[in-house]
Computed example of a mutant assay.
Amino acid sequence: MTFKNTNHTYTVLGILLLLMSCKSNQKLEKSEFQQNDDSVNLYAFIGEKIAVKEFDPNENNTEIEIDSITGDTIRKASYVMDYGFKNKYKVVQNVFNDLKTDTIEFMAYDHSGRPRFENYDYVLLYLSLNKEKGYFYHQKYQFDPVLKTKNGTWKGSHGESIEKLFNEKKKGVFTARGLFDK
Score class of each variant (00 low, 15 high):
79 Y>G: 00
40 V>C: 01
163 E>M: 04
45 F>M: 07
136 F>I: 07
110 D>T: 12
32 E>F: 14
153 T>C: 03
135 Y>W: 14
103 T>M: 00
45 F>D: 01
78 S>D: 14
74 I>Q: 07
96 F>D: 05
62 T>I: 15
3 F>G: 09
119 N>W: 07
16 L>M: 13
155 K>A: 14
175 T>M: 03
82 D>V: 01
171 K>Y: 05
177 R>T: 08
62 T>C: 02
157 S>N: 13
57 P>W: 04
108 A>S: 15
153 T>H: 06
27 K>H: 09
99 L>E: 08
80 V>L: 12
67 D>V: 02
38 D>H: 08
89 Y>P: 00
95 V>T: 00
156 G>D: 02
132 E>A: 13
12 V>R: 06
165 L>Q: 02
125 L>S: 00
173 V>I: 13
143 F>D: 02
11 T>K: 14
48 E>Q: 08
9 T>V: 14
147 L>R: 13
160 E>F: 04
166 F>L: 14
17 L>S: 13
73 T>V: 06
31 S>C: 12
144 D>K: 00
159 G>P: 08
62 T>R: 11
163 E>I: 10
75 R>L: 14
26 Q>R: 13
95 V>H: 09
76 K>L: 12
72 D>I: 03
165 L>D: 03
106 F>H: 00
37 D>G: 07
87 N>K: 07
82 D>Q: 08
173 V>N: 04
8 H>W: 13
48 E>H: 05
164 K>A: 15
34 Q>D: 03
129 L>S: 05
54 E>S: 10
41 N>W: 05
142 Q>L: 13
78 S>L: 12
75 R>G: 05
88 K>Y: 10
108 A>L: 00
135 Y>D: 06
33 F>R: 09
6 T>D: 15
76 K>E: 10
41 N>A: 00
111 H>W: 13
181 D>F: 07
5 N>E: 10
28 L>W: 07
42 L>M: 12
41 N>T: 03
17 L>F: 06
59 E>L: 13
83 Y>I: 09
179 L>S: 05
15 I>W: 08
34 Q>H: 15
140 K>P: 04
151 N>G: 11
28 L>F: 12
42 L>W: 06
10 Y>K: 11
44 A>L: 06
64 I>W: 10
23 K>I: 15
152 G>Q: 09
75 R>C: 08
126 Y>Q: 01
102 D>A: 11
140 K>H: 06
19 L>W: 10
26 Q>C: 10
121 D>T: 10
5 N>C: 12
95 V>W: 04
170 K>C: 04
168 E>A: 09
16 L>E: 01
